[in-house]
């Protein structure tokens, strides 16, 4: 059983290296995760597993969504940073594509920790897969700890409200929650705004079966042209903006904080606007 999984893992890793293009292996070997003798870091991140697990995602990145990357150098090569992105597409492929981009395209690669919803750890397989790939539950305590350790965190301040919004409201940002700004002020981490164009069209939600969602305790149950939110091959455009730095007290009153949050939201909106203007076609 373990021989089989070892063989599968080796094949998947080779696939990742191949899809990543020449030099991928050498770049990925530069990552040093603080793993113990069992290959995991204290959060349960297993680099070896992650390199294998991203193979199918890298295939999606290269062949299916054919991601175009803009401004990846705006993500600092090291040190604490918050990536703040719009969220869309019913299933969080946008998070996966951002992570693959920074792992496979960036030199040296950056491991990004996306903050996942609190209900994700109740899902079988998904919970384990997320943990081994370095994704963690988005509690403030977790973020503080990771930023203090100079890690990169990916935040979707719109949460599921953005992810599961109906198709007619595509590219209209939902109000950003202010939690990430308090963390940025507290830790002094810069914020890199990220605009994802293409994910909205991957799974247009025509309606949301709210009673069914409640029954399954899912945040939403969208009905898309493919019925289940399986993504269509829309072309992705990832835009990374210039880092924003904020100063102030994490305890300042809401009005002041909202002003800073609005600044980040405007930066993301500008990236989306640019991305949409530059885009020639949804699928090509």
């Amino acid at each position: 059983m373990s021989e089989l999984s070892d063989a599968v893992r080796a094949r998947l890793k080779a696939w990742t290296y191949e899809l990543g293009g020449p030099g991928t292996r050498a770049r990925l070997d530069k990552i040093t995760a603080p793993a113990n003798e069992f290959g995991v870091d204290p959060y349960g991140f297993d680099l070896d597993f992650a390199v294998a697990a991203v193979a199918p995602l890298t295939w999606l990145y290269r062949k299916y969504f054919r991601v175009e990357l803009h401004g990846v150098d705006n993500v600092p090569a090291e040190g604490r940073v918050l990536l703040v992105s719009n969220h869309s597409g019913q299933l969080p492929f946008d998070a996966a594509m951002i992570e693959v981009a920074l792992l496979v395209e960036k030199d040296p690669p950056r491991v990004v920790r996306a903050l996942v919803e609190r209900w994700v750890p109740t899902l079988p397989f998904v919970s384990t897969f997320m943990a081994r790939c370095g994704q963690i539950v988005g509690t403030p305590e977790n973020c503080r700890r990771l930023l203090a350790a100079d890690e990169a965190i990916l935040v979707f301040p719109e949460g599921v409200r953005g992810l599961n919004k109906p198709f007619r409201e595509r590219y209209q940002l939902r109000r950003f929650g202010p939690g990430f700004m308090r963390l940025a002020l507290e830790s002094g981490a810069p914020i890199v705004p990220v605009g994802v164009v293409g994910a909205e069209e991957q799974a247009p939600a025509l309606l949301d079966l709210k009673p069914l969602a409640r029954l399954l305790s899912f945040p939403a149950f969208p009905i898309t042209p493919t019925l289940l939110p399986f993504p269509l091959p829309a072309r992705y455009h990832l835009h990374f903006g210039e880092p924003l730095r904020f100063t102030g007290s994490p305890d300042e009153d809401d009005a002041e904080l909202e002003r800073k949050v609005a600044e980040v939201q405007a930066a993301v909106a500008a990236l989306l606007e640019r991305g949409l203007a530059e885009r020639k076609h949804v699928f090509w």
């Binding site: 109740t122 305590e141 700890r145």
Partner: peptide
């Protein structure tokens, strides 16, 4: 708990 932080103080 599913929503526990990774390290509880």
């Amino acid at each position: 708990r599913p929503d526990n932080s990774n390290f509880l103080p």
